[in-house]
Amino acid sequence: EIRVRVEKDPELGFSISGGVGGRGNPFRPDDDGIFVTRVQPEGPASKLLQPGDKIIQANGYSFINIEHGQAVSLLKTFQNTVELIIVREV
């Protein structure tokens, strides 16, 4: 597990896919977790996150067994800083 802090400027600078009942993700199709799919170059998350990172927690909210829409809404709700716990396959 890796813990990262992303400062919104003005957005977080990454996209996610997956989630329960979602269209899945390109990295682990059998896993309904939330995965980072795109990281904006030079964006707030560019040095912190990589495509394929699985987000398991954001600001204390579990991202395990969460629906895609709910994950997106939560990330939009947070002000300024988001603390993520991620799992990265090496």
Results as ranks from 00 to 15, higher is better:
E1W: 08
E1G: 06
E1Y: 15
I2M: 08
I2S: 03
R3M: 10
R3Y: 15
V4A: 02
V4E: 00
V4S: 02
V4Y: 01
V4M: 05
R5V: 13
R5M: 12
V6W: 05
V6S: 01
E7T: 15
E7P: 12
K8F: 09
K8Q: 05
K8A: 13
K8Y: 05
K8W: 06
D9K: 14
D9N: 11
D9R: 12
D9C: 10
D9P: 03
P10I: 04
P10K: 08
P10R: 08
P10N: 06
L12V: 08
L12D: 00
G13F: 04
G13W: 03
G13Q: 04
G13Y: 03
G13A: 04
G13K: 03
F14A: 00
F14V: 04
F14S: 01
S15N: 15
S15G: 07
S15Q: 14
S15A: 12
I16Y: 05
S17M: 06
S17E: 05
S17P: 03
S17C: 15
G18Y: 01
G19S: 05
G19M: 03
G19H: 05
G19F: 04
V20A: 09
V20P: 08
G21K: 15
G21Q: 06
G22V: 07
G22E: 08
G22K: 07
G22P: 08
R23W: 11
R23E: 10
R23C: 15
R23N: 13
R23V: 12
G24R: 11
G24E: 09
G24P: 11
N25F: 06
N25Y: 07
P26W: 08
P26K: 08
P26T: 08
P26S: 09
F27H: 10
F27R: 06
F27V: 08
F27A: 08
F27Y: 06
F27T: 09
R28H: 13
R28P: 07
R28C: 15
R28G: 08
P29K: 12
P29H: 11
D30F: 07
D30A: 11
D30L: 11
D30I: 07
D31Q: 07
D31G: 06
D31H: 05
D32S: 11
G33R: 03
G33F: 01
I34A: 01
I34D: 02
I34P: 00
F35D: 01
F35H: 04
F35M: 03
F35Q: 03
F35G: 01
F35K: 01
V36I: 10
V36Q: 00
V36P: 00
V36K: 01
T37L: 12
T37F: 11
T37A: 11
T37S: 11
R38G: 10
R38T: 09
R38I: 15
R38N: 15
V39N: 00
V39D: 00
V39F: 00
V39W: 04
Q40V: 14
Q40K: 12
Q40N: 14
Q40P: 05
Q40C: 12
Q40D: 15
P41V: 08
P41H: 09
P41C: 07
P41R: 11
P41G: 07
E42N: 13
E42D: 15
E42M: 10
E42L: 12
G43S: 12
P44D: 06
P44T: 09
P44H: 09
A45P: 04
A45K: 02
A45M: 03
S46D: 15
S46H: 15
S46F: 12
S46K: 13
S46N: 09
K47R: 09
K47T: 10
L48G: 14
L49A: 00
L49H: 03
Q50M: 14
Q50L: 14
Q50P: 02
P51I: 07
G52F: 05
D53H: 01
D53T: 01
D53N: 00
D53P: 01
K54M: 06
K54E: 04
I55T: 01
I55E: 00
I56N: 09
I56H: 00
Q57F: 08
A58R: 01
A58I: 03
A58Q: 00
N59M: 04
G60I: 02
G60L: 04
G60S: 10
G60R: 06
Y61F: 13
Y61L: 12
S62E: 06
S62I: 04
S62W: 03
F63T: 04
F63R: 00
I64H: 11
N65A: 09
N65Y: 05
N65I: 01
N65V: 02
N65G: 11
N65L: 04
E67Y: 09
E67L: 09
E67W: 07
E67S: 15
H68N: 07
H68I: 09
H68E: 14
H68Y: 12
H68C: 13
H68A: 12
G69C: 12
G69R: 15
G69Q: 14
G69H: 13
Q70L: 13
Q70I: 13
Q70Y: 10
Q70G: 06
Q70H: 12
A71C: 05
A71T: 01
A71W: 00
V72E: 13
S73K: 14
L74G: 01
L74S: 04
L74Y: 13
L75H: 02
L75N: 00
K76R: 12
K76G: 11
K76D: 14
K76E: 15
K76A: 13
K76C: 12
K76M: 09
T77P: 02
F78I: 15
F78V: 10
F78L: 09
F78C: 08
Q79F: 06
Q79N: 13
Q79E: 15
Q79A: 12
N80L: 08
N80K: 15
N80A: 10
N80D: 14
T81A: 13
T81V: 12
T81C: 13
T81W: 09
T81R: 08
T81Q: 13
V82M: 06
V82T: 04
V82F: 05
V82R: 02
V82Q: 03
E83L: 03
E83C: 05
L84I: 07
L84F: 13
I85Y: 09
I85M: 12
I85L: 14
I86F: 03
I86D: 03
V87N: 15
V87E: 11
V87M: 13
V87L: 11
R88S: 00
R88M: 02
R88D: 04
E89F: 08
E89Q: 10
E89Y: 15
E89P: 09
E89I: 11
V90L: 12
V90C: 14
V90T: 08
V90W: 15
V90E: 15
